[in-house]
Write a protein that binds this DNA or RNA. Sequence first.
DNA 1: GCCGTTTTCGGCCCGACTGTTTTCAGTCG
Length: 572
Amino acid sequence: MDNRQIAAIFARMADILDIQGENPHRIMAYRRAAENIAALSRPLEEIWRAGELDSIPGIGKTLAEKIDELMRTGRLEAYEKLRAQVPDGVVEMLQVPDVGPRKAALFWKELGITSIAELEEAARAGKLRSLPGMGVRSEEKVLAGIEALKRRSGRIPLGTAWELARALLEPLRELPGVVQAAPAGSLRRMRETVGDLDLLVAAEDPEPVMARFRSLPQVAEVLLSGTTKTSIRTHDGYQADLRVLPPARWGTALQYFTGSQAHNIRLRGLAQDRGLSLSEYAIKREDGTEILCATEEEVYAALGLPLIPPELREDRGEIEAALAGRLPDLLELSDLQGDFQFHTTLSDGRASLWEMAQAAHAAGLKYAVVSDHSRGLGVAHGAGPEELRRQRAEVEEVNRRMGGTFRVLTGVEVEVRADGSLDLPDEVLAELDIVVAAVHSGLRQPREQFTARAIAALRHPHVDILAHPTGRLLGQREGADVDMEAVLRAAAETGKAVEINAHPWRLDLNDVGIRRAIELGVLLAISSDSHDPEDFGLLHFGVAMARRGWASPAHILNTRSAEEVLAWTRRS
DNA sequence: GCCGTTTTCGGCCCGACTGTTTTCAGTCG
């Protein structure tokens, strides 16, 4: 049983208990446990074997016993009992927007509805409106929610959300009276996917801002609109929430709406300990007087904390670290001196080596590794030994023309075959500065086989970096089923680096993997994987993932100079 | 169900918006 499965069981138990109207704090305890387990960087099974379950926040005696039962037997009696009491379809109704535990229970108990399909049928037949607390409007909202659920393609990949937020905020920023405008929520925390957009504007008069927001061309539907909050759905089916607050309250507002919810709950607890109450509007003293915070620094300072960077705000130990004065010295984009992957027209890139080198230099880098695909990746017109030799000559020429201001390092993104071997001869690989090994095919191989392939690549003497270790494409393709713990241990043992692919469709290794890699002493290499001169601008997404994984400059290969990197490749 | 030098019991974050209500429950974040 892996962490995700066990987290899913506890989350499901919370949903069932919620529908049953259980004690909300007991429900919260299950939810919190599920979230903390999902966020663990170590396998839960390892923690269980070591008898250290009580070290996980939110896991007490009872839940530890339940984990023990799951690990030993693969089953959980309490879970099976709960599932027998509430049909799965009733729990699934919670996915419908505006249907919560109370209404799901109402529909089930009063009308015997046990699936979303039955719910839709009942709503169309006008059977919901006569239920207590319901009406025609509520019935319409249920139908609209079901429609939205059908359209919903899941969470928004970070890169898409980033661009959409920029497009929605730009026109608001230009309005008179708007002092600040910024994304908040999981987008500001740079989670790999974003549920919906949280946008924040500081202005004394909210109404003109709300009006402009409602009239933006991207808006398909206004879901709700009040004096402080407006929610819309875009034509692409994404939801965006805009909040407008006075500039003097910007700090509390930005802090609050950045979240995460778990982080904020902890912060409110700290406020209570100090006799304070924290909300998006202000910090309130017990006598009712307000402390206004125009910056987030002031909010954290009032609670006796240094500013915690948004990427860390997940209640994954950052509050304890902040209290102890041990927040990590997080990596910054400006720490990067180089990039470990870009492509040219030799394979599937869209620009020449010269154009790419200039773009990388313009992006502030001092060096970059040209890493065209090897021949094995047919779709990308991969390069063979002869093409790579010719490219080496071209690299020398480009480096000469750059006049010492920038250096291209020779390299390749060599294909790892299904059996774990590489599709270029050793003598070709030996001539290159950097060898990046990548798996692009056979992602559906069984876990053991895929893991063995990745480890074989890491053990190859000429390989320096393992690229995008799961091969996932966010929102399009699941990554391979891989024993990441084993792969990271192999990287640690061989002294090889693992890639953080910065492309917003990949973000692979992800934040949890990065944090574990750092714990195991694995070096990480951030790659833009640029196929176009503009793509070097994507590196900040990779930096964001590294920050979410608590990375400092020392953990990241890119912070070293080209000479230091070359010295590292000559490691024994 | 978790958690704790102010507690091993009694707390557990806070507010907006909507719809069905006449003072509030439900949902969401």
